[in-house]
């Protein structure tokens, strides 16, 4: 066991971690930040995506001890200071970009990383970027719509196929 400290959503937070403790377990069990989900635990689904030093990573596929001192943003850090939903979150609500909501934290974190890198992505770029985020409910169209809307672009009605 070792004490691990990271800056999580703007605050310095500490919790114990074993060698094998994954970042996602450190967040969920150590800090009780349960917004980050575990979908597959095999690095495939992207439900666990958080930002580490600004870049999206799968929290189920990185060790907590390796990230001592890192800056981490989770879905809990995406709301505005007054508690209202952030732009990407609000767009997911407005465009029905979620049904059960299990994939949503990872989708929002991946989408916001994309918009930081590429503020006006094309629809194809959104789909390509979200390749590692699997959704079992929505069929993706409304997720893509939400991301396009969050980037301030015109959203064409996307018919369900």
């Amino acid at each position: 066991m070792a004490k691990v400290t990271m800056n999580v959503n703007g605050k310095s937070r500490s919790a114990e971690a074993e060698g094998r403790t994954l970042l996602v377990d450190w967040l969920r069990e150590g800090l009780r930040l349960t917004g980050t989900h575990v979908g597959c635990d095999t690095s495939q689904c992207g439900a666990c995506v958080v930002h580490v030093n600004g870049d999206p990573v799968k929290a189920c596929s990185v060790l907590a001890q390796e990230l001592d001192g890192a800056e981490v943003t989770t879905i809990e850090g995406m709301a505005n200071a007054d508690g209202s939903l952030g732009t990407v979150q609000q767009a997911f609500q407005d465009y029905h970009g979620l049904q059960c909501g299990f994939c949503t934290p990872g989708m929002v974190m991946a989408a916001s990383a994309l918009l930081k890198e590429n503020p006006q992505p094309s629809e194809a770029e959104v789909r390509h970027y979200l390749e590692g985020n699997i959704c079992r409910c929505t069929g993706y169209h409304n997720i893509v719509k939400a991301v396009m809307a969050a980037s301030g672009q015109q959203v064409e009605p996307v018919a369900a196929e």
């Binding site: 992207g46 995506v49 999206p56 799968k58 596929s61 970027y129 590692g132």
Partner: peptide, 9 residues
Amino acid sequence: IGDPAVRNR
């Protein structure tokens, strides 16, 4: 390779 999150690690 893989997806953006895989490529960051």
